[in-house]
Each structure stands twice: as structure tokens, then as C-alpha cells.
Amino acid sequence: MILLVAPAGLFRDGVAHILGDLADRVEVACADYTTRVFEGAQTADVLVLDGDCMSEALNTVRASRRLSPGLPVLVLLTAVAPNIVEKFLSAGVARHLEKSQSADSLLQALRILISGERYSPSVALDFGKDWGATSSEAQRKSNAVTDTDIHLLTPRQIQVLALAARGESNKSIARELKITEGTVKVHLYAVYRALKVDSRGQASVAAARLQKVRDTQLSRALDGQLSMGRLLAYSIPSHHQSGEVLFHKDDPSDALYYLVRGTVGILEIGINVGPGTILGEIGLFSPDHRRTCTACCKSDCDLLVVSATDAMRLHYQDPEFATYLIHLITRRLESDKSRLRRS
């Protein structure tokens, strides 16, 4: 049985009709996000979700992991944006498919899931790859790219590609490289032509195979620069008022924090940090996984919170993030040593 969860209406009815064509004896059950989705769903073979209802869909995926751990999940998306895809993959989605794909693509993706194939964790961070797409031409293009093609790109175009492959938006790339969004688009067009691809997604897949792009990403991490695309996919926004304590010294280290707005004081060492700072990284790697200092908001603060489990998962899966953390921890330990020598 296929369980389709989507708001009632033409889209759900149309998809249900297509799903019914998968095979003569396949049953399709429909539900929306306002019902108890998993009532009687223990016999479902595949769960199909309308991913545009993002928060509801993510909650449903997580519920399916608890109630039916082996149930494969396919999510349908209007826009296959890297940070959105990563959220679904992290929650446990097996495959995703853009709504602009054909009915044949949908049926092929479902046949693969029903046959038992699952999403491969070894490529879990390959944002651009559309697991639902069945275009052999698109796949051939991304597979055909080699380091020879990268010589056709300027250093600036390689920088733009490296950031785009990390999930950064055109606006974010423009801000980071101090250029206009129009210039970013021009560079991306040049990248597509040089790599013989047609989209940002295919360019991201190609970038994962190009050593110069990986070197650029690692170089940025060694310079203390972090591409936020990956971190955003794992994070939850959080607001704290002035005077609130984020964590006390010796508390369990259960999360990593990225400060978006405001000022946070690190009480034991008497320093204040501002926007763009990561907090709580040392406790993740301490032997007893305890906080080494107390962090208190000196003003109203907006933060992104990443659970310790997700932060460690990202550390092991993403060399750029791991390099950034190692660089950050080393700098902070050296600063601590300098303060001790001066005191």
C-alpha cells in the first residue's frame, strides 16, 4: 500500500491517480496533515509526502521513523533547494522528487523504493543530486565533468561554484564575496557553460568531483570562514532575552550555537562575542562532554541551535565543517594560553 499525505485538493487527487497506475493491485490511501496519519498505516509499503508543507511533512517523517522505522519515504517538492533537501534527508527521507518531473519519474522512484533500495548515507551531503530525477542525460552530464573542465573557470568563478555547492543563495554569495547578485548570476552562467550542465543542482554534483573546488572550500574553512548552507539545514532558530544563560559551566554539552544577532558573554574568561560566532564547540569534544564555560546573553540574541548529535554527524560527514571546527578550537585554545601567560 502507498500512503499519500498531502492537503486535500487537485494535487493530491492527481498524484493518487498516478500512483494507482503503479500496478494493478497497489492500494493508495490518502491523508492530510490534520488527521492522525498513521492510523492503520502499519501495512504501508511507501510513504509519499507533499514536502511544500515543510514543518508538517518533517514531523510526519520523524513520526514514521518512530512508529515504522523501515518505511521508505518519498517527498515531493516544488523547489529542490539544498537546505530544504538536507532537512528532509536528515529527518530520514529516502528520496525526493521535484514536482515538475514527469509521472514516469514518480513511478520509477516508487518502484525503486518498493523494491527495497534505500538512500545511501555515503552521499547524504550531495545536495544537488535529485534522487527522483530519471533523466539519463542530466546524470551523464554531471558524471562527465572532470578537473580538466575547471581550467576553463576563473578563480572568482571557482569561489562562486564552491559556495553554491555548499547551499549558499545568490544573495549570500554576493554578500560574502562583496559583489552584486547580478554578477553572481553571470558567474554561475559561465560555470554552467564550462561544466556543460544546465542547472545549479547539476553544477553542485559536478563540484563534488572537482579537486580545485574542494580545495577552495577547505581553504575558506582554514581561514575561519564557514558556509552556512549546511549548518542551516540542521539548525533551529532560537531567541533569547538579555540576561538569559545559554548554558552553565559543567552542563552536559547537548548543542552547538551560531550567533546571528546580539552579544554573548563567556563569563569565566571575561570576553564578549558577536554575530557570526559559533559557541559550545569545545564541550562537544571534551572527554566528559561537559561545558567548559558559562555563556550568558548580554543583549537580546537570535541564534541557530544545532543538536550535539547533528553537529557530530555533520563533523564526520563534511570535511569543510570539520576543518573549520578544528581551526576554531585551536585558535580558542591558543587564546586561552595567551590569557593565562598574561595573568
Rank of each mutant, 00 (worst) to 15 (best):
L76T: 00
K185W: 10
G229I: 02
D300Y: 14
T309K: 11
V245T: 13
A322L: 05
G70E: 12
R220D: 04
L74F: 03
N59D: 09
P69C: 08
I158S: 01
D32F: 09
G276W: 11
V93R: 07
T330A: 10
Q159G: 04
D50Q: 10
D21C: 15
Q241S: 13
L152I: 06
D21R: 15
G167W: 00
I326D: 02
A91F: 03
G280W: 01
D223G: 09
L19S: 00
L4F: 12
S307Y: 06
H240Y: 12
A109T: 15
M1P: 11
L161Y: 02
S286T: 15
S242D: 13
A162I: 06
A207T: 08
A133E: 08
D318I: 05
G280N: 03
E98P: 10
E39A: 13
R341V: 13
D288M: 07
E27N: 15
T134A: 11
A44W: 06
Y234N: 00
L188W: 01
K298H: 04
Y33L: 10
C293V: 07
L222V: 14
P275F: 03
Q157T: 00
R62I: 07
A133D: 11
I271H: 13
G283D: 03
D310M: 10
L3T: 05
R95A: 07
D104M: 07
A203K: 04
D254E: 13
E137N: 15
V80T: 15
L113P: 01
F247N: 01
D198F: 11
G243L: 08
D254P: 07
I173A: 00
G40L: 12
S242M: 15
Y192Q: 06
A57M: 09
V28D: 00
